[in-house]
Simulated scan of single mutants.
Amino acid sequence: MRLPMPMPRVRREPDLVELVERQQLLRVRGRSIAWLPPLVVLCAVPLLDWATGGDFRVISWLVLVPGIAAAVCQVWTTGVFAGLAMFLYVLGDDSRTGLPDFILVALGGLLSVLACTVRLRGQERMLHMRAVVETTRRILLRRLPPDVGGLDHAEVYLAADSQARVGGDFYDIQPSPHGTRVVIGDVQGKGITAVEAASVLLGTFREAAYHEPGAEVVAERLETRMVRHLRYCAHIGRDDAERFATAVLLDFPELRSERTDWGPDLTGPDTVTVGVINFGHEPPLLVSPDGVRLLPLRDGLPLGLSELDPRPHPSSTVRLAPDETLLLVTDGVTEARDGGGAFFPLREYVAGALAADPRATEPDTLVRLVHEGVLAHTGGHLDDDTTIFAVRRAGRAH
C-alpha cells in the first residue's frame, strides 16, 4: 500500500506592497516608525520658537517637517504633517513674520507632498523591475527539489551585479528515463545578452537531457543550439555573435559495472559510474574523506566553437563512491582575487577544510565552506558571477 506523499510547503513570493514596506529603514519589530523624525521636528520647532522669543523667530522652520516626511513617509502621512505644520504656524505666529513665511510653509508642504508622490512612484517602478529580474532568475535558475533524480546536491549563485541578481552562469539537474543529467556552465561576457544565451542552453538541456539516451547526443544538441543562437545574433547584426560558453555535463546512468578511465569498476553497486563531458570548463574536484583530487578529464572546446574543431566533444567516465562528492564551480571562484591580486586557492582551501572536518564532503557543508571562503578572500567584492555546485549520489534509493 502506497502512503500519500506529504504536500511540500509552498513559499509565497512577496507582493509589491510588501517589497515597498521592506524598503523602509525606520522599522522596529516589523512596524514602521518613519513618522517619528518629522513628529520630533514638529514638536521641537514651536518649543524652540517659544524659548528664543524676541526678534529671533524660528517658527518658519516648520517648513522642514513635511520635507522630512516626504523623504521617509507615505503620501498621506506627508499630507498630514504638512497640514499640522501650517496649523502650528498659524497658531504660533504673532504677525511679526507676516504673510511671506506663511506662504513659504504652505508652498513647502505642497511641494513635499508632490515630491513624496514622485519618490514612491519611482520606488515602485524600481521594485517592479527587481521583481521582473527575480522572476527571470527563478525561471532561468529554477529551484531544485532536494534529492532530485537520486542525487544529493547543494548550490549557491552570486551575481557580480548585486542589483541585477542574474548573470551568465547556469546550472540544472534533469532526471530522465535514461538516468540523471547535470549541467553547470558560464556564458562568456555579461549583461542581458549573456542571460539570453544561458536561457537558450538551459532550455535545450532540459529537453535533450530527458529525451536523448546518450550524453554524447545531449552534448551535440547543446553545441548545435549554441551555434544556431550565435548565427541568429550575427544575422540581426548584434555584436555578441562571437560569444561562447564553457560547461560541464554529468551523466548519472543506471548503476552498472564497467571499465572507467580510472580502472575497472569492481566495487559493485556501492559505486556509480558517472559520464563527464567538459566543454572547456574548470574541471570538477572530487572531494572525499581521503582528500581532494582534480579529475583528469579530456577537455573539449567551449560551446559555440565547433567550427574550429568539428569532432565530437570527448567523453570521460569517473567512478564515484557513496562518500565522494563532485564540486563544480565557475570562474568567479577560481579567478577570485584578494586585495593583493592573489587567486583564491580552491583546492588547498577545500583540502584544509576536510582535514579539519571530514564531514565537509556533505554537499551543503561543502558549498557553504567554499562560499564563505570566496567572500572572505575577496572581502565580499565579486568581479564575476559565481556559482558553487556540489553533487553526489543520494544515500538512499529513489
Score class of each variant (00 low, 15 high):
Pro100Lys: 12
Asp169Asn: 12
Arg119Trp: 15
Leu88Met: 13
Trp76Lys: 10
Gly150Gln: 08
Thr135Met: 09
Pro145Thr: 03
Gly191Cys: 05
Ile184Gly: 02
Lys190Gly: 05
Glu196Gly: 06
Ala82Asn: 13
Gly167Cys: 05
Val105Trp: 03
Ala164Val: 11
Phe102Pro: 01
Ile184Asp: 03
Ala69Leu: 07
Gly109Trp: 06
Asp169Arg: 15
Leu140Phe: 02
Pro146Gly: 03
Gly79Thr: 08
Ala82Met: 08
Ile68Cys: 07
Gly167Trp: 00
Pro145Ser: 15
His153Ile: 07
Tyr157Leu: 02
Gly150Asp: 03
His178Cys: 07
His178Glu: 05
Thr193His: 08
Leu64Gly: 11
Gly109Ser: 11
Arg181Phe: 11
Glu196Asn: 10
Ala160Asp: 12
Asp147Pro: 00
Thr136His: 01
Pro100Asn: 09
Thr193Ala: 13
His128Asp: 09
Phe81Asp: 07
Val105Phe: 04
Val63Phe: 15
Leu120Asn: 07
Val166Trp: 00
Arg119Gln: 10
Met86Ala: 15
Glu196His: 03
Asp186Gly: 06
Thr180Trp: 09
Val132Gln: 14
Gln188Asp: 03
Ala159Pro: 02
Trp61Ile: 04
Val118Phe: 08
His128Lys: 06
Val195Ala: 14
Thr77Arg: 13
Met86Asp: 10
Leu64Pro: 02
Ala154Gly: 12
Val183Ser: 07
Gly191Trp: 07
Asp172Trp: 12
Ser176Ala: 15
Tyr89Thr: 14
Asp152Lys: 05
Ala82Thr: 12
Gly98Lys: 10
Ser95Met: 08
Pro146Tyr: 10
Tyr157Asp: 02
Gln174Glu: 14
Thr77His: 05
Tyr89Cys: 08
Val156Glu: 04
Gln163Met: 08
Ala106Gly: 07
Asp161Phe: 01
Thr136Pro: 01
Leu158Asn: 01
Gln123Ser: 05
Val105Glu: 07
Gly191Ile: 01
Gly98Ser: 11
Pro145Ala: 13
Ile173Lys: 14
Gly108Val: 02
Ala154Met: 03
Val156Leu: 09
Glu134Lys: 13
Gly189Phe: 08
Gly191Phe: 11
Ser162Tyr: 00
Arg137Met: 07
